[in-house]
């Protein structure tokens, strides 16, 4: 895990004590995966930036209460992924009630060019999954958590996590296969 271990604990303690450089080290260690995870769940660069930024701001607000003996990553990633799920669900809802049409018609530049760089078939297939399934896939294969850890982070039964992983993988493989056949 990125940032895990002694360095990370030292950065957390330093940041809690007011060391801006330790806080910066913590940020730089965790930003890439936090942003990538958010991006792969929401498939919108601007929204991913908002999600990751809000997660880090939440981390700042809660920094003094954070137990520095515990790893920082899972705590941050839990916020990122849950907020990303909320955002993706809200966007899906907006589409259902029609507002999404306007978003879909807006120039790519205005809405953060959501899927333009997702040329990889796997990622395109990931976009076809529900936000909840995407989140589980991202937690497992991007952030490398075990199903048990994912079940605790998302407050889901372990069986639900396993089934979402299985169904997500099946859907991904099916989608990739379909695209390969076309």
């Amino acid at each position: 895990m990125v940032g895990a271990g002694r360095d990370e604990r030292a950065w957390v303690r330093g940041a809690q004590a007011g060391s801006a450089s330790d806080f910066e080290a913590l940020f730089r260690a965790h930003w890439p995966r936090a942003y990538r995870a958010a991006y792969l769940v929401v498939h919108d660069a601007a929204a991913a930036e908002d999600v990751a930024q809000e997660a880090f701001l939440a981390a700042v607000r809660a920094l003094d209460r954070f137990d520095s003996r515990r790893p920082f990553g899972p705590w941050l990633h839990r916020i990122v992924v849950n907020r990303a799920i909320d955002w993706a669900r809200a966007r899906a809802l907006r589409r259902e009630v029609g507002a999404g049409d306007a978003i879909a018609e807006a120039p790519a530049e205005e809405r953060g060019d959501p899927t333009a760089p997702l040329s990889d078939d796997v990622v395109a297939a990931l976009a076809s999954l529900s936000p909840d399934h995407r989140a589980v896939i991202v937690l497992r294969y991007v952030l490398e958590y075990t199903p048990g850890e994912i079940s605790r982070m998302l407050e889901l039964p372990r069986g639900t996590v396993n089934s979402r992983l299985r169904r997500g993988l099946d859907a991904l493989q099916g989608a990739v296969r379909t695209e390969e056949e076309q």
């Binding site: 890439p32 942003y35 660069a45 991913a48 990751a52 990889d120 294969y141």
Partner: peptide, 21 residues
């Protein structure tokens, strides 16, 4: 799958990092 997901070029990553920081 892991390799594919980690290899996705994420749009505007460095700029987003700079703004967020």
């Amino acid at each position: 799958l892991r390799s594919a997901l980690l290899g996705v070029p994420v749009l505007d990553e460095l700029e987003a990092q700079r703004r967020t920081w």
